[in-house]
Design a protein around this nucleic acid. Structure first.
Lengths: 350, 350
DNA sequence: CTGTTAGCGCATTCAT
DNA sequence: ATGAATGCGCTAACAG
């Protein structure tokens, strides 16, 4: 309830002087600066964000557009959300969560009401409707994921294709000729999620590069169905001798099934995991390519902030949105294979 | 860039009329209402949040105060964050994440700058410094966790004490007389996190109630140290025949160690899990008491919103903060034991 | 340079 | 249904 006027009165100066002291946007004599400082402290004054924003058209808030997903995915999404929040805070921004119910409605609402300066978009699809939305609104945004059109907006992502290919090549190099690639869930594939499609493409590329037979299996969020699928795979004709697993969140299920069906996972896993969370204890002992959550979060945040600043810089002139197209940055993160506790198993002799 | 004035002009009415139409805070003739509606659509008008807030002193934003935790915990916290975001949206609020770096600084900043109408506080400690902060600022808040002082603020929580006690009693009823209780990490215990201390208290109570010998072991986030701890426990003198596990996020590690050391987890687990996430595949097959994330998130959000509304209702009078103390709600959620895929193992004969 | 005055940004709401 | 006042902080223009 205390305003800049109260502070000014108490310090015996004009309101504008207080503003200048607080923003440092002008030199003020050390003596009055001190007086103002003291008045601020004594009154516990803090500028009203809404007033500041109304005047300056900046909110110092970033929006994070989350997808609406099922429970299994939420832990991963939430992890990203927290890391983005950390990164944002380090750049002086707060983070507003936007769980997009329908289409891009939440994002649209946040952008148009001026609740945020820029947005980070999670769970990017190959052709993502939100890209059109933010462009149409000329709202600064960065993608946490790599869309089909790489020049539409700045983005960052793990190189899923390279990761999947690396996983397959690693297994092939260990002597495996029949490999199963456990992709993300059917649902994610059908939604054309970027990471899912690129992972599958990478698996296929790995097959071509090595000559190994790679069977791509779409996973499922339903544990019972997943177990049946895996059993059918491992007990069927020409079963694979190794597994590359992109559906990392189901790892415990997969390990259980693989162990039960004799894939030698317990003492020497014939398995590589792709995109596991850095602290996932289920993946810890396996050879794996981790999801670089922190790097991705930091970079996407940086790109979003950069886009917001570019817009502010361009605005005064009037040229505006065309200019921005040229300055779109990317960060494609190469996969790193972590060895796991035990070396990769050689294939069982048939 | 389009304002309420533009709309008014296009519709041939006064700005205030547009406002009334948009907020429905007054009856307007059907005819002009239509004209205004059309003008809004044609211009794509959306009210500026900062202007609205400046005037009305409400933001329709809720703050979520997150703790600063290590990676392992972040997935759980993030899950909560998303569920709170969902719940908030359903009540017409957006959610602002506040990763509290030092003490309650983030929360304080958000409250004082008027960025949010109320806060939900996560990861509550027994004596939580943030409680004092929000009371001092007269900022509406609800706790996602049960503090020592249960009447300071509204809160909701799983009844961890009852849950731990139930877990111990369940194991005892299955014939186990020596039980180990794997509590949360040392770090959480030392931070005096409410759920950790109450869980341990419940385990002790369970021991008293059943006469079973219950050894409480604090866990650790370091997998290697955890493995050593478990090995020492299971191969030491008088090893437990069953495990109650509150450190659910380390479950894969714990299962591995328990299996290796001969606790019969693989075919018939002598184990109950307390506070696992609803979709955690690692806990799925075990008898467990799940963390009711969705219920807790919804309730905490509801309480926070209720607190905000109570404050708004009280404000005009002038009575204010004293009034609120009487209307503090709680929701203590009783534990529910889910059976797991296989029945609980009888103890091995010694 | 340092400090002050005045006007602006936009939606809400009380009188008229 | 309208006009005008209001909420709060920023900043250009002005004065010392």
């Amino acid at each position: 309830m205390t305003t800049i006027k109260d502070v000014a009165e108490r310090a015996g100066v004009a309101p504008s002087t207080v503003s200048y002291v607080l923003n440092g946007s002008r030199s003020i004599s050390a003596e009055t600066r001190e007086r103002v400082r003291r008045a601020v402290d004594e009154l516990g004054y803090h500028p009203r964000a809404s007033a500041r924003t109304l005047r300056s058209t900046r909110t110092d808030v970033l929006a994070l557009a989350l997808p609406r997903t099922d429970g299994g995915q939420r832990a991963v999404d939430g992890r990203f959300a927290i890391d983005v929040s950390d990164a944002a805070r380090r750049l002086g921004y707060d983070l507003l969560l936007t769980t997009a119910e329908e289409k891009a409605e939440g994002l649209r609402r946040v952008a148009r009401s001026g609740l945020a300066d820029a947005a980070v978009l999670m769970a990017v699809d190959m052709e993502d409707a939100r890209i059109e939305v933010v462009r149409e609104l000329a709202f600064p945004a960065a993608l946490l994921g790599r869309p089909a059109d790489e020049d539409a907006l700045p983005w960052t992502d793990l190189d899923w294709e390279a990761a999947a290919s690396l996983a397959v090549r690693t297994l092939a190099a260990a002597g495996h000729h029949r490999i199963a690639y456990l992709a993300p869930t059917e649902r994610e594939v059908l939604a054309r999620r970027s990471y899912a499609l690129r992972g599958i493409a990478g698996a296929r590329r790995g097959a071509r590069e090595t000559g190994a037979a790679v069977r791509v299996i779409r996973s499922t969020g339903n544990p019972a169905r997943l177990a049946r699928k895996l059993r059918a795979l491992l007990t069927g004709a020409e079963p694979p001798t190794a597994l590359a697993v992109q559906h990392a969140s189901a790892l415990p299920h997969i390990l259980a099934a693989a162990t039960a069906e004799g894939l030698r996972t317990a003492d020497a896993p014939a398995m590589v995991v792709i995109g596991s969370l850095p602290d996932d204890p289920a993946a810890r002992d396996l050879p794996r390519i981790e999801l670089p959550v922190e790097t991705m979060a930091a970079e996407a945040t940086r790109l979003a902030v950069a886009a917001a600043e570019a817009l502010r810089a361009a605005e005064p002139d009037g040229g505006g949105d065309r200019l921005l197209a040229g300055a779109i940055g990317h960060l494609l993160i190469p996969p790193a294979l972590l060895p796991g506790a035990r070396p990769l198993a050689p294939p069982r002799s048939p």
